[in-house]
């Protein structure tokens, strides 16, 4: 006699949801369960073409943190819609296993919403558990991708790059050349070019102010 766990019940409820509203509610409940066994099911929800449920699933996956990464990386690369949501989840989690996907997304994804999520994610990779030399390798990769994206054609991506550069630099000692390069990237975004949005300039300005106070 095995007792059905509360999570298993919630998974069943989700699998049986037969309306968009039901699916949203069931996803929210499962996302709130904070149980690693929910991860593969939440990843499945990313492919259901239900934005409300996908937002809830991404939040649930981010709160699961590293426990959700394996499930996210097993996602079918052909399922474009689901992949876009997965980039957001991996960006929020910051696990280094998601690095390749985020680098790839910022550099080449066609959707600005995916590039913007990747840009923020590359600024907040969780590197504390890596050996110092590897930390530096990852930081350089993130920095290179962010600097390249300072010329992205979409304002919202450049905005996210400003956020990513600030987050990245805030984790570095200012004497490192990487800190200086991140700062230089922010100065690029500060430029009042005709095609640069004022909101991007203001965000870069704020980032620079905060870094000066570091």
């Amino acid at each position: 006699m095995s007792q059905v766990s509360p999570v298993a019940e919630k998974i069943t409820a989700l699998q049986q949801a037969d309306s968009a509203q039901d699916l949203l509610r069931a996803t929210q409940e499962l996302a709130a369960s904070a149980d690693a066994s929910a991860a593969p099911v939440l990843v499945e929800v990313l492919g259901f073409n239900n934005p409300g449920a996908a937002v809830a699933a991404v939040e649930g996956l981010i709160s699961l943190g590293t426990a959700a990464v394996d499930a996210l990386l097993q996602l079918d690369p052909e399922n474009y819609g689901a992949r876009a949501w997965a980039v957001r989840a991996l960006a929020g989690i910051g696990d280094v296993r998601g690095l390749e996907l985020l680098l790839d997304a910022l550099g080449s994804d066609v959707a600005a919403s995916v590039r913007r999520a990747a840009a923020k994610g590359l600024g907040q990779m969780q590197l504390a558990e890596l050996p110092p030399d590897q930390q530096q390798v990852v930081q350089r990769q993130c920095l290179g991708a962010l600097l390249a994206a300072t010329s992205d054609g979409e304002w919202v991506v450049r905005y996210a790059v400003a956020v990513g550069l600030e987050l990245l630099a805030a984790g570095l000692p200012p004497h490192l050349p990487e800190w200086q390069q991140a700062r230089a990237g922010l100065v690029t975004l500060l430029a009042a070019a005709a095609d640069n949005a004022p909101v991007v300039q203001r965000r870069a300005h704020l980032a620079l102010l905060r870094l000066e106070q570091q």
Partner: peptide, 25 residues
């Protein structure tokens, strides 16, 4: 929110609006 930053003025100030945008990326 970009519109609020660029077209608006007064309270809340830029910093609160930009923090709100950061959370939506």
């Amino acid at each position: 929110l970009r519109g609020l930053v660029e077209q608006g003025n007064g309270d809340p100030g830029d910093e609160a609006l930009l923090a709100c945008m950061d959370a939506l990326l």
